[in-house]
Every structure is written in structure tokens, then in C-alpha cells.
């Protein structure tokens, strides 16, 4: 039997409630619950985080600005039932791929087309679209056990190691 490393789930992280969710990477997991737990262990080894969302990679549509220029999305690609979609945009190569719009559409392509039309002023080098129904999210009640512990593990922070001061003291001796 060929090896399985399990499917991939895309991970979106809310660093701070005042900031939009950002795409941070992916994890391998057998199912959404394990994906959420894995996302916590992979991406919240250090502060700061207040929320996590995961969605199976196959349910997240990624499009780059170059792809869109080559092959514009059609408004009515594969119509299905009306759902809420989250659209993430990355304004430039420095800023994160962050939540930019939340709208109703019949397909991720349609959601992206709408977002492009409505926010034509927004430049983005990369887009991601996911249906809200495909997300598994950390719960408010999970916060204490999911995210607070990272803040107490200060031995992982480089500022805890006063190497520059130690070297200076030794040189002075």
C-alpha cells in the first residue's frame, strides 16, 4: 500500500482580534478536528494567536494576479447553491494574505469575480477564496487552553538569552 501523509488543510490565523485572519501555511491531517489541533501545535508554538481556522486544501481556491490577467474568472463558472465565501487578498509581497471580503455567491470563482469588481481599487498579488461552510474554527471557549499557554513559554524567545551582555562582560575582564 502506498504511503499516506494524510490530506492537506490550509491554515488561517487570527493573531489579534483587531486584525483580519491571515493565511499562514498548511498542515497534514486525517480530518478537520485533527487539522485544527495540528494547526495549533505547528503555528502557535509562540505567542501571539487568538483564533485559528482550517479548510481542506481542495476547498480553497488560490489565484495569482498573473493567472487572473491570463485567464479572468468567469462570473458564472460552476453555479451551485448560494453560500457565504471569504475572500483573502495579498496587497503586495510584504503584507500577508489576509481576509479582505466576505460575500454571498454560487461558487468560489463567482465570489472572487465579485470581490474583484467591488474592490477594483484593491491591488492583490494573490487571492484565496473559501466557503465559510468548509471552515473548522477554534472556539472562543478553546482560547484559554489553545492559545494562552504559548505566552508563558518565554524560554523560546531569543530575548531571554543575554549573550551580547555576557560577551561584553567577558571582554571587559
Amino acid at each position: 500500500m502506498p504511503d499516506t501523509q494524510w490530506p492537506r488543510f490550509e491554515v488561517f490565523l487570527i493573531e489579534d482580534e483587531r486584525k483580519p485572519a491571515e493565511h499562514v501555511g498548511s498542515v497534514h491531517a486525517p480530518d478537520p478536528e485533527m487539522a485544527l489541533l495540528n494547526a495549533r501545535d505547528v503555528f502557535v508554538r509562540r505567542p501571539h494567536c487568538e483564533g485559528l481556522w482550517v479548510a481542506a486544501s481542495g476547498h480553497v481556491l488560490f489565484r495569482t494576479a498573473e493567472e487572473l490577467a491570463r485567464d479572468p474568472v468567469s462570473q458564472n463558472g460552476h453555479p451551485g447553491e448560494e453560500r457565504r465565501y471569504l475572500v483573502f487578498g495579498k496587497p503586495n509581497h510584504r503584507e500577508p494574505l489576509a481576509l479582505a471580503a466576505c460575500l454571498s455567491a454560487q461558487s468560489p470563482e463567482e465570489a472572487l469575480a465579485q470581490a474583484l469588481k467591488e474592490s477594483s481599487a484593491i491591488e492583490s498579488v494573490l487571492w484565496a477564496v473559501v466557503s465559510e461552510a468548509e471552515l473548522t474554527r477554534s472556539d472562543r471557549n478553546d482560547r484559554v487552553s489553545f492559545f494562552e499557554p504559548a505566552a508563558t513559554k518565554n524560554y523560546k524567545l531569543h530575548a531571554e538569552y543575554p549573550t551580547a551582555r555576557l560577551m561584553k562582560e567577558i571582554r571587559q575582564k
Binding site: R18, E50, G51, L99, E132, R140
Partner: peptide
């Protein structure tokens, strides 16, 4: 739980 969206 209820969906809480963090917005810009």
C-alpha cells in the same frame, strides 16, 4: 460556535 470574523 458562532462565527466571529476579525475584520480590518
Amino acid at each position: 460556535g458562532p462565527c466571529e470574523f476579525a475584520r480590518p
